[in-house]
């Protein structure tokens, strides 16, 4: 073995311990879940006693209307909360990115909802939405308006959980967007102002494009979270009325504990994982494409200038 060879191996040698830990901590559970998804496994059995059923769990899921409905509910929920939260969060950050008195306090207040345990958020909103003693309906009837069946109508129930989620997670986007805004290069802003860009032009053509990499990651994080949200829905509606708010993670939890079908629950989790991985890959591919495009434009501009 030559010295060159040895030194080429050195980095891997140093990487080995962390790779081993990563493999054990990450791949083992995922592998276990993938394996379990091919079994007809009841929680009263050891995994060794469970019957191997191949792809039957996946086939069952594809044909299961309840699973499809819950997937659809999840997609609706995730699309609604993430888009509304992105708009509100970034909007708030743009509004509050200035030196005002008491700003620190205000920012802390804004991010409070995010720090509350989800179960508590669920309980709080459940009280707010209460049909008779809840403050929302009480205010509506005090104003002479008709009360809203927040949680007891299948149309409203999804809206209600969307509202609760927006209340809790907009601050997350707000603080990340604010951090991104404050780290933008001052010189660019100054140049834009000198060139006479209006406030809107600055936002559209400078701030937002420069914030984009951060926003993409933020959006991705929220999307992943929105696909996995459980506690708030569990407390607020437990999936009801009917299946109108039964998001995927709730269905997975119910399949494992209520229906006692660990194999199917594992198969569902795998599908969710695959979906999220595709989403993540797409997001990263998009931001990579944006970066290369920006680099190409910059090069072209430099060449023009030269």
């Amino acid at each position: 073995m030559t010295i060159a060879n040895t030194s080429r191996l050195t980095p891997y040698l140093f990487l080995a311990p962390s790779l081993t830990v990563l493999g054990l901590a990450l791949l083992y559970p995922v592998g276990y879940m993938v394996y379990a998804s091919f079994l007809n496994w009841n929680p009263s059995q050891h995994i060794g006693q469970a019957e191997w059923v191949g792809l039957r769990n996946y086939l069952f899921l594809i044909n299961d209307p309840s699973f499809r409905e819950s997937l659809f509910v999840t997609l609706k929920f995730a699309a609604a909360v993430v888009s509304i939260e992105m708009i509100l969060g970034v909007g708030l950050a743009l509004l509050l990115d200035r030196q005002l008195r008491g700003m620190t306090l205000l920012r802390t207040l804004f991010i409070l909802p995010m720090m509350i345990a989800p179960i508590v958020v669920g309980l709080m909103w459940r009280y707010l939405y209460h049909p008779t003693v809840g403050p929302l309906n009480r205010s509506l009837s005090a104003l002479g308006m008709e009360t809203v069946p927040w949680l007891s109508d299948s149309g409203w129930a999804l809206v209600s959980i969307v509202i609760a989620d927006i209340w809790q997670w907009t601050p997350f986007i707000f603080i990340l967007a604010l951090a991104a805004l404050q780290s933008l290069p001052k010189s660019v802003m100054e140049a834009a102002r000198i060139d006479g860009a209006t406030g809107w032009q600055q936002i559209w053509h400078i701030k937002l494009p420069l914030m984009l990499p951060v926003l993409i990651v933020t959006c991705l994080l929220r999307l992943i979270d929105a696909f996995k949200v459980l506690e708030v829905v569990l407390v607020l509606t437990n999936g009801g009325p009917g299946l109108s708010t039964e998001i995927l993670s709730l269905r997975i939890a119910r399949t494992a504990s209520e229906f006692r079908e660990l194999g199917k629950a594992a198969a569902m989790s795998n599908l969710l994982l695959l979906g999220l991985m595709v989403l993540t890959a797409a997001m990263f591919a998009y931001s990579k494409w944006m970066e290369t495009r920006a680099a190409r434009l910059r090069k072209a501009a430099e060449a023009d200038a030269a």
């Binding site: 009841n42 309840s66 007891s152 109508d153 299948s154 999936g239 009801g240 009325p241 009917g242 299946l243 039964e246 119910r254 209520e258 229906f259 006692r260 079908e261």
Partner: peptide
């Protein structure tokens, strides 16, 4: 019976649809 958990959940969902929808 062991299969009851699943049927019970379906019954609960169906009843909820009858009551609310």
């Amino acid at each position: 019976i062991p299969a009851w958990g699943k049927i019970n959940a379906d019954l609960g969902t169906t009843m909820s649809k009858v009551l609310t929808e």
